[in-house]
Write a protein that binds this DNA or RNA. Structure first.
Length: 428
RNA sequence: GGAGAGCUGGCUGAGUGGUCGAAAGCACUUCCCUGCUAAGGAAGCAUACGGGGUAAACCUGUAUCGAGGGUUCGAAUCCCUCGCUCUCCGCCA
């Protein structure tokens, strides 16, 4: 949620910055809402004040044994008016709230301006692409004899679900463990295990709700109407650790990581990436979250980028780093880096990590604050990133480490996690 | 699933219809006293949102005692619904 005072004081600036990400703000409605709100609020508070005075008076007069019928009459009129004005105010305030919850975050000034992914900026290209002496296959063709079973996924659940068996399942597990170990041991993140089902409040805090319910999977307790949502990313539970809390300056930065499954409905991406396990309803990901002092969030963003990059370096996978343009960033981000790994079969780079600074956008929704050295409560900054997506990383390994016979060499960093297995062999 | 107890400020904890945003203690801040330390004394110390003030200081109003609704002129206090925590029983990985 953006700061309402920014809208009150600099609405034109907000408008143009939102325009750069393709969001049109309804200025007139907001100004009308605000004027009306101000009048109503003053009116309501005056009425409450006089009701409180009168009620107090009734108390004191009654205790003296005086007649209070005049006061009662007048407080009755006040209350009638109050009831009417107050419900108007409440209605208006919830409208303003809805209005605010729908507005995306403002892009940072360093973000390239653009409306589509074509305008994302390549910052760096890293790693050597391997030369293959044979015609490369994609992970679907390779995976068939290695344990990637798309048909089984469909049978069990439907499109965009995959089942992995045997050594490849082991590789998948190894990758998750490996990434988690790097982030905890080399970068000092606290390892967490979190719920995968979360409530409305949590998703509202990180910005997925109320606007993007269609992107989520929704569950209900048997026999109950209460909804719980499957997490679309570990960012949701981890960032919500600080919801409704005031943390001490000395606790910052808070660095959290978790290996979690992620569930996405992929509404609106029909026909996109239908082949293989690039775009699934369910995938695993190691999530990195940092919660820090506002002065430090851009330094932290750079650090988190390097934390995600280290995984690809250790796996010796070629990748590039992108700075997303204003129109391609997520709802809550002021600045986002994507890391894209090289996929030889497609001859292109695919996203395996996205690292964003949300500044105080989520913190405001979360009421996540810290006690500053001047004793005032201030909003924290929150950042999140993937460190990294397990499924896509495995796809990249399959494709980049393929051998002529269709077997897969295990990246050196993973051999110990694979109990010494250094080649994944398929059934012929 | 059954039965019971509870949820009050950063923490502990009093408060069962009015003068209570809330006693007291702890913690914290400032000051005083004492040669440091320890002890003692005084004052201050919740959050959000309004109004005033050029701004800060400050003044002032409203709301908030798990959440929502109700009763009442008036609710931390009474009633209802929900959530959560704890104890006991049952069930379960």
């Amino acid at each position: 949620m953006i700061d309402i005072n920014l809208l009150r004081n600099n609405i034109d600036e907000v408008e143009s910055r939102l325009n750069s990400r393709g969001f049109k703000i309804d200025k007139k409605s907001f100004i009308d809402f605000e004027n009306e709100r101000k009048n109503l609020q003053i009116r309501v508070q005056e009425l409450q004040e006089s009701r409180n005075d009168l009620s107090k008076k009734i108390g004191t007069e009654k205790s003296k044994g005086n007649n209070v019928s005049e006061y009662m009459k007048s407080v009755g009129q006040t209350n009638d008016l109050l009831k009417e004005q107050n419900s108007a105010l409440e209605l208006l305030q919830s409208k303003i709230q809805e209005f605010l919850l729908d507005i995306p975050n403002l892009p940072h000034e360093s973000v390239p301006i653009g409306l589509s992914e074509n305008e994302n900026e390549v910052l760096r290209v890293e790693g050597e692409k391997k030369e293959f002496s044979f015609k490369v296959k994609d992970h679907v063709d390779l995976g068939e004899r290695l344990g990637l079973d798309f048909d089984l996924g469909v049978k069990l659940s439907g499109a965009r679900f995959t089942t992995i068996r045997s050594s490849l399942a082991r590789l998948h597990r190894s990758l998750g463990q490996f990434m988690l170990d790097i982030q905890t041991q080399e970068h000092g993140y606290e390892e967490c295990y979190t719920p995968y089902l979360v409530n409305f409040e949590s998703l509202k805090g990180t910005g997925q709700l109320p606007k993007f319910e269609e992107d989520l999977f929704i569950t209900k307790k048997g026999g109950s109407e209460d909804k719980l949502y499957l997490i679309p990313t570990g960012e949701v539970p981890l960032t919500n650790f600080v919801r409704d809390s005031i943390v001490d300056l000395t606790e910052l930065p808070i660095k959290l990581t978790a290996l979690t499954p992620c569930f996405r409905s992929e509404a609106g991406s029909y026909g996109k990436d239908t082949r293989g396990m690039i775009r699934q309803h369910q995938f695993d990901k190691v999530e990195l979250v940092q919660i820090c002092h506002p002065n430090e969030s851009y330094d932290v963003l750079d650090k988190m980028l390097s934390h995600a990059e280290l995984i690809l370096k250790k796996l010796d996978l070629p990748y590039r780093v992108m700075s997303l343009c204003s129109g391609d960033m997520g709802f809550g981000a002021t600045k986002t880096f994507d890391i894209e790994v090289w996929m030889p079969s497609q001859g292109c780079y695919r996203e395996v990590s996205s690292i964003s600074n949300c500044e105080d956008f989520q913190a405001r929704r979360l009421k996540a604050r810290f006690k500053d050295s001047d004793k005032k409560n201030k909003l924290l900054h929150t950042l999140n990133g993937s460190g990294i997506a397990v499924g896509r990383a495995m796809v990249a390994i399959i494709e980049n480490y393929q051998l002529k016979n269709g077997d897969i060499k295990v990246p050196e960093a993973l051999v110990s996690y694979m109990n010494g297995v250094d080649v994944i062999q398929g059934k012929n």
